[in-house]
Design a protein around this nucleic acid. Structure first.
Lengths: 151, 151
DNA sequence: CCGACTATCTATAAGGG
DNA sequence: TCCCTTATAGATAGTCG
């Protein structure tokens, strides 16, 4: 479609390549839109130029279209998803981990500044209770070992 | 381009809509391929027909293209990613959290079964050390409070 | 580098088997 | 329903300003 026929191979001349890119890209987008309207299709079109610039068209919403695509391809092992869910989970895990770590540090006797006397008393009680449990356990375990060893 | 001009609106007749869909889809894919080759562009095209069937074309690899697209759109608040990375992070966090939780439980005097006498002794030492720290801290804090209250 | 022009090529609407 | 044909609308390569 033009003054002369062309063969489909990469256009060497950069200037005319860019001109052609601009013209044909416009045409492609137009055709995509027409097809979407005429045939009630859902279409997503993503183009990166050779210079890395992004052009896109979506008859609806690119994000939801990509999600739909991912789901449709799931059985074909495509591992693309809306990260929002996983990201939320990761953020929540990070938070939980942080909280537990803070707590754990206190039980290790670290970072006690900022605790009230009441907090410290609670912590002491907990540690004493744990200690009692551990000593009891140790004693019974040692007895068992001892009985084995002494027989 | 055909025997008659058409207006761009949804084709009512289902049969001719499907015929047009088939023809124009083929044409669109052809144009997309040509553009990719002629201008060295990276192109991804996703089409869902009105019946929900998926058609796709990618000049390279759809997955990597979608990832690239996601990254390019990051600043524009698009929340689509290859989940693999985030998933890995989440899995790692889950593991770390689990380990810390186990450790923490032992310091709470829970789930002590399975620990050797030596393990229990170490735990006891740690708890005693923590306890000393906490008591020391509590005493000095109580003194400070006390001095405030008693003045 | 961009837009306009237009001759020419391509896609396709309508029709037929 | 699908494939083929063909007249015609539409896209665009080369050119000019």
């Amino acid at each position: 479609m033009g003054r002369g026929k062309i063969v489909i191979k990469k256009i060497d001349n950069m200037t005319s390549r860019q001109v052609t890119f601009s013209k044909r890209r416009t045409g492609l987008f137009k055709k995509a839109k027409e097809l979407a309207i005429l045939c009630d299709a859902e279409i997503g079109l993503i183009i990166f130029s050779d210079t890395g610039r992004l052009y896109e068209f979506s008859s609806s919403n690119m994000k939801s279209l990509i999600e739909k695509y991912s789901k449709a391809k799931e059985e074909n092992h495509l591992i693309v998803f809306a990260a929002s869910d996983v990201k939320k989970e990761a953020a929540s895990l990070r938070q939980q981990f942080h909280n537990l770590q803070q707590n754990h540090r206190k039980m290790m006797g670290e970072e006690l500044s900022g605790l009230s006397v009441a907090d410290l008393q609670n912590l002491q009680n907990q540690l004493e209770s744990s200690l009692r449990g551990v000593i009891m356990r140790k004693t019974s375990a040692a007895l068992k070992d001892g009985s084995k060893l002494c027989l």
